[in-house]
Amino acid sequence: MQDKAPEIVPAVSLHNLTKSYGHGKPVLKGIDLEIWPGEFFTLLGPSGSGKTTTLRLIGGFEFPDAGEISLCGEDVSRLPPYRRDVNTMFQDYALFPHMSLRDNVAYGIKIRRVPEPKRRERATQALEMVHLEGVADRRPSQLSGGQRQRVALARALVNEPSLILLDEPLGALDLKLRREMQVELKRIQKQTGITFVYVTHDQEEALSMSDRIAVFSEGRLEQVGTPQELYEHPASTFVACFIGSSNILTEAGQDILLRPEDVRVEAQGYVPSPDEAVMPGTVTEIAYLGPVTRCRVRGASEDDSILAILPSRLARGLREGEPVAAVWFRAAAYRLPASAA
């Protein structure tokens, strides 16, 4: 990255960030990360992996034990939140219950002493961007969850920060609304060009929205890359298993990743071509999911079990207990790098 664009200063740069809470065990064990201006960057990982702590450190709500945080080239490691050009969309929205939506949105620019006519105009613009200009005089308690969430976004946008942090903002929404908001967030991010740092534990959400993703596990970074890189060339077994569903085969002590959608199910006695691998077995489980069907094939032993995800029209004839052959192209199997631990 450095030699590719030496003149670009990263929007966020984390250097050897460590943090532990109280007398407990460390939450972050040395995070190095660079986020580029205009990126939709996702911190992904299971709960307790350190992604939210990293976000809170960037926001200034907590301070690192060691390491450095720079925003646009400026070291802010010890600056409080109100001295950083960053706004946060909180998980519980944190809307001020005693203020109207307009006052909620205008809070930041009022504190920064933007004069009244200008302030009102910018608050209205921000509310328009999230399609809530019609209810500007309501209180947060009169809104639905999805609307509150939009207000929280408008409240961050109105300050025109260089960076917006989003802490699992869609966690409380139902699936349909979640999908809508994913599209909406992505649209607003593109439109404004503001760098978004997004925390989620939902790998599907991360894949569909992000320019790049950092995968966290137990306070460390497992891998940083584009969704495609992470899915197709995971750097570790952890990443392979956390992103998408996967079959992990072992061959000569090395983990091999085989994505279920690369597996076909053929009739027993199928004769493979030279570039194909085959595992004879029995169908133990069939789950119809609409467009696709999940099918588990068990081989000779209990451990030799392969999951296949088939287009449903190809899975129509399959029955549980039926002897079959799981078939895949050898080229589809990906050798995972030996894990460092």
Partner: peptide, 25 residues
């Protein structure tokens, strides 16, 4: 407690946050 964090996030000092958020509530 995130209400006060939100105020500070928006640029308010802890004292400004106290006056505009905590006290009215």
């Amino acid at each position: 407690p995130t209400l006060l964090e939100a105020a500070q996030d928006m640029g308010a000092t802890p004292f400004q946050g106290f006056l505009t958020v905590t006290l009215p509530l």
